[in-house]
Computed example of a mutant assay.
Amino acid sequence: MIKAGIIGGSGYTGGELIRILLNHPAVDINFVYSTTRAGKKVTSAHPDLLGVTELEFTGNVNPDVDLVFLCLGHGNSSKFLKANTFSSKSKVIDLSNDFRLMNDANFLGKQFVYGLPELNKNKIIASQFVANPGCFATAVQLALLPLASKGLLGNAVHVNAVTGSTGAGVSPTATTHFSWRNNNVSWYKPFTHQHLGEINESLSSLQPDAGELFFLPNRGNFTRGILATAYTQFKGSESEAKQLYASYYSDALFTQLTDDPIHLKQVVNTNQCHIHIHKHKDTLLITSAIDNLLKGASGQAVQNMNLMFGLEEGDGLQLKAGVF
Rank of each mutant, 00 (worst) to 15 (best):
G15D: 08
Y12F: 15
R19Q: 06
V32Q: 07
S34D: 09
D28T: 13
T13M: 04
I18A: 03
G5K: 03
I7V: 15
R19A: 07
G14N: 09
Y33I: 02
T35N: 15
I20L: 15
N23K: 15
G15C: 09
G8P: 06
I6Y: 03
S10C: 01
E16R: 14
G8I: 06
A26W: 08
I20M: 10
I20K: 11
D28M: 05
G8M: 08
Y33K: 12
G11D: 08
I18C: 01
L21K: 08
G9V: 06
V32T: 05
P25S: 13
G5D: 05
I29R: 08
G8D: 12
E16V: 03
V32D: 04
D28R: 14
I29A: 02
V27T: 12
I6K: 02
H24W: 10
G9N: 09
N30C: 09
V32I: 14
L21T: 05
N30R: 14
I7Q: 04
E16S: 14
Y12H: 15
T13I: 13
Y12M: 06
A4H: 01
A26K: 15
S34T: 07
A26Q: 14
E16M: 07
I18Y: 01
R19Y: 06
L17S: 01
I6G: 00
R19E: 12
L22W: 11
A26D: 15
V32C: 09
I6L: 06
G9Y: 10
V27Y: 11
Y12D: 13
G5F: 03
V32E: 03
G8Q: 12
T35Y: 09
E16D: 11
Y33T: 02
Y33P: 02
I7W: 07
A26N: 15
I29K: 10
L21A: 05
L17D: 02
L17H: 02
L22Y: 10
A26I: 00
G11H: 11
G15A: 11
Y33W: 12
N30L: 01
G9R: 11
D28S: 12
I7M: 10
A26F: 10
Y12W: 13
V32Y: 04
F31S: 08
P25E: 11
I29Y: 04
A26M: 07
G14Y: 13
I7G: 07
G9P: 10
G5L: 02
P25I: 00
G8W: 09
G11V: 08
H24M: 07
I6W: 02
I7Y: 07
I20S: 09
S10R: 01
N30S: 14
P25K: 15
L21F: 06
A4M: 00
V27E: 11
I20Y: 12
L21N: 06
Y12L: 10
G11Q: 09
A26R: 15
V32W: 05
